[in-house]
């Protein structure tokens, strides 16, 4: 029987880069099984690699921001050379360059990666699933103010919105505006107030 190839039907099976990417999961599982059976890899090595990928997180980003809020000289270094300033805090950065973009009373920054899921992973860990979704990737550049509204942020129109597409070699972090009564708060309090959404820019006020 000749192979009757219906291209469209195959296409429909591919669920690309969404959380339920079943096809890729099957391939990865099969590959891992073969590598383990051949003695090229152990299950322990796999879980250790995953743990390493997942060990950075929002706590590191919060530490950077709190430091910048309370140390003006550090903030200047952070804005000038994000990678070097982050490394000062003994956070090992694997990205080529980190660009820190500062929110002000008149400017807000939003980070996206329209082509895939570029994200400062060595600092923040893995991106949230919505960041990887095609909907966010397409709409964050086309209608970012609507995206922000859906996250509960009605950005006043006199605040300039800069959307940063991390399409190539740079990785970005948003430096939010500090909360009121900054000097009355401990670094631990400040760090606890900073969320991942602030560092991506889908949230603005830290309170």
């Amino acid at each position: 029987m000749p192979h009757d190839h219906h291209h469209e039907e195959h296409e429909a099976l591919v669920i690309e880069d969404e959380a339920g990417n079943i096809e890729a999961q099957i391939i990865v599982d099969a590959l891992q099984e073969v590598l383990i059976r051949k003695g090229l890899l152990t299950a322990h090595e796999v879980t250790a690699a995953i743990a390493k990928l997942e060990s950075p997180g929002i706590h590191l980003g919060a530490k950077i921001v709190a430091k910048a809020w309370t140390d003006p000289a550090y903030k200047q270094r952070l804005l000038q050379d994000g990678r070097a300033a982050v490394q000062e805090l003994e956070i090992p950065v694997t990205e080529a360059r980190i660009i820190v973009v500062e929110n002000t009373a008149t400017r807000h920054n939003l980070i996206t990666c329209t082509l895939c899921s570029c994200y400062p992973r060595s600092i923040l860990g893995q991106p949230p699933s919505w960041y990887i979704s095609k909907a966010y990737r397409a709409r964050s550049v086309r209608e970012p103010r609507r995206i922000l509204a859906e996250f509960g942020l009605d950005l006043p129109r006199d605040v300039q919105l800069d959307v940063h597409d991390s399409n190539a070699d740079m990785r970005y972090l948003v430096l939010p505006e500090p909360p009121a009564a900054l000097h009355l708060r401990t670094p631990e309090d400040l760090e606890a107030m900073i969320t991942r959404d602030h560092l991506i820019g889908v949230a603005r006020d830290v309170a």
Partner: peptide, 19 residues
């Protein structure tokens, strides 16, 4: 942004920055 997406709702000073 107003020149990239003329049909969408952007403030005049909004920008898209890309590498």
């Amino acid at each position: 942004q107003t020149t990239l997406w003329p049909d969408a709702d952007h403030a005049l000073h909004d920008r898209l920055i890309i590498e």
